[in-house]
Nucleic acid binder design. Structure first.
Lengths: 226, 226, 226, 226
DNA sequence: CGATAACCGAGACGGTACGTCGAGTCTTGGC
DNA sequence: GCCAAGACTCGACGTACCGTCTCGGTTATCG
């Protein structure tokens, strides 16, 4: 078992990656790199999504606007590729226990959240989801779904091999592991993600609980609720 | 025990709520309501943050642009007040157990997440946090902090009275309870928040765990969790 | 013979000079004077007609905008009254010869053209004539017509008494005497109107060409003036 | 002798007529013509200077506002070019006598004054001279000075060749010939300039007073004229 | 080797929205 | 009913970007 099933197709190389033999002058790789570099520099400089205009990117990259529009249909599509470029491959799994694999998976997301550009993109993507379903779809496809799939897969196998409970609510577990990371990624800049022990705490909390008093004396006090 | 300590000061009445005796014609309450209504209508109609221009709001509200700018310095400040207006008071607590209170608290957030406008605003706010620290601060103050504070308070008292474990990591619990709700609020529109049993599942999962194979003696003590 | 027939009715006291007994608090004379003073100060400071906003006048005068609009329907009406206030009575005529009277008349216009405010107004009035026929009418009535009438009257009597030729083209003479003054008034600021001998030169130039009696008998009657 | 020495440099082609090889897409000649046409249409329709907004011009011309601002820094600069475009070359001179040339010159101005657009511009230009010295300068340079220069030149040559008196006050003659035309141009719309004999009357009026060679018997009778 | 085609930078194009200013009107409390 | 103050709607200002479209000029491959 290595990483996930549907490995992130980086789709890198923007739109129109035809395999038909292109004629005429080929696209300048240098221009493309300059564009990516410009976007990332601007993101790093604290530019907001709305300030991140195509004109500013073009100027920063020393490139004509048309050179950008030739590659991406609009600003958001460019961003999608920027995020794709950033997205490193999912971590190799296959630790001694499935708990270890879950910790690895969560730690992967934690480390992503520490990258400023990554936080920038998550926030912008969320902000644009109201108006732009296409971005929502792409972001789900590239980021959200692979991560959940990774966790689902670990859980499925953990259940099959008996390490995890059979009646586990997989989706709920996904959210218990992903949600807090998202929360800490988007809401703070002074990253509360730096503690490398965080993933272990989270996985153990999700798997075993962190709040209940030892069962003996609580058995009656938790009458199973509604 | 009622709701939280620092009840959400709605700050309603936009900028400049001087107590100095205002001179001249007073601001029109009707105009203000029309503006709020227009924003909410546009949000409801699926307008994105970037399409939500001041000009459109003014037109929709039948109001001059200056009337908006007189009250808020920019679009985002207006949104902050829109969100503040939406924010209903935190739920009354004081259920039979602190677990019940936690479920109430999570359910409050779940119900907020079901409101389309609320989802809209959370996303927009997150998207703007990159560029606009003031909005980040306000959003934290009005939304993030009260909610965490509410949970912290429940936990603190639950620990004091012995219902919850003393070594509980309060912050981690906060994120286990808030994170998944945020996740489901911002990532999907076909709301996966509709299940009214979700809060109970989450609280129980956080408190007791959902994954670990029962050490023999715990098998019977967690019978529920459908 | 004193001045003109239709003496400039200053119309001072702006709009709504009803003789019906007004009720309530009477209009403040102080406010009115402050408004006039503010306008004249702004004109003096080199403010252009388009910069001369009602708001600025009100601020300068320490007066509410409504106080201005209560008196004049708009900016231009206010200006008309400002010009009217400036307009001193036409000069007393009745010199030894009608030629002297013409020189007096021209000199009157020359002296008006030396006043900065007066130049300011002439220019502004001309500029607005394209769009605002009411101002055109008023300006004609108050300024243009009285001046022409004054000259026509002198000429008529001069002809009657035989000093001026009977076949004199009165209208042409009017323009020969008024046009150059207007030209020097509107086109230059470094006033080329300062030479007090200018009116005599102009009158003689105009008269001896189209108005002078045949030379032989006129030789003594035009003793070349000072 | 043809027209004037300093022939009206039409300066056409608005701001920035660099000879540096312009890069990028060249300015659209069509857009420029559309803008001129729109301005002239609006002027013809009786729009006043203050109603002549850039937005209206742009709409009328089917052009973006930026396309206008790219060429002229403001409304008045545009007007200057509109007037320059209108200004036809000064008339060819060289008639049988200098008196004929003067009549031609005056008739040229008379005909200009008959053009509605021309009247419109003269008035607007005068109105703006209070606040905008740059326009004053340009208007002088393009319109006022060439016309005076034309007359001065005729007079100079007429004096040299003995047709005109040597002690002629050239500047006064200029104003006697220009002033009345200006007067009739700006003060009336029902054009009192239509009489084609007017220039002859004016020239004869001016000349026989201050410029005509004495018919033998008048030589001594007009000795003065300092 | 020359033609052709797509690229490149620059920048103008018609638009939309920005945030400001002023017009002329309306609405307070106070005189 | 006037006053100062300042709100109101409306519309123009001049700027910034949007995404598209020429320009002259630069590489590529194809014939």
């Amino acid at each position: 078992m290595t990483s996930a099933d549907t490995p992130l197709k980086p789709c890198h190389g923007p739109v129109g990656e035809q395999d038909a033999p292109r004629r005429g002058r080929p696209r300048s790789e240098a221009a493309e790199q300059a564009i990516y570099a410009a976007v990332e520099k601007l993101m790093e400089d604290g530019t907001g999504l709305s300030e991140l205009s195509i004109e500013r990117i073009a100027a920063e990259a020393g490139v004509g606007k048309a050179t950008i529009y030739r590659r991406w249909p609009n600003k958001e599509a460019l961003l999608v590729d920027v995020v794709a470029r950033l997205e490193e491959p999912l971590p190799p799994l296959g630790g001694p226990t499935y708990r270890d694999d879950l910790i690895s998976a969560v730690d992967y997301m934690r480390r992503r959240g520490l990258i400023k550009r990554s936080r920038w993109i998550v926030r912008s993507a969320l902000g644009q989801m109201n108006a732009w379903p296409e971005l929502k779809h792409t972001y789900h496809e590239r980021v959200v779904h692979p991560r959940r799939q990774m966790i689902r897969q670990i859980v499925r196998r953990g259940v099959e091999e008996g390490e995890l409970r059979a009646d586990l609510d997989v989706e709920l577990l996904c959210e218990l592991l992903i949600g807090p990371i998202l929360l800490r990624t988007v809401l703070w800049d002074d990253a509360p993600l730096e503690d490398p022990d965080l993933p272990r705490q989270m996985v153990d909390a999700a798997l075993q609980g962190i709040g209940a008093r030892p069962p003996a004396q609580r058995a009656s006090s938790v009458p199973s609720a509604s």
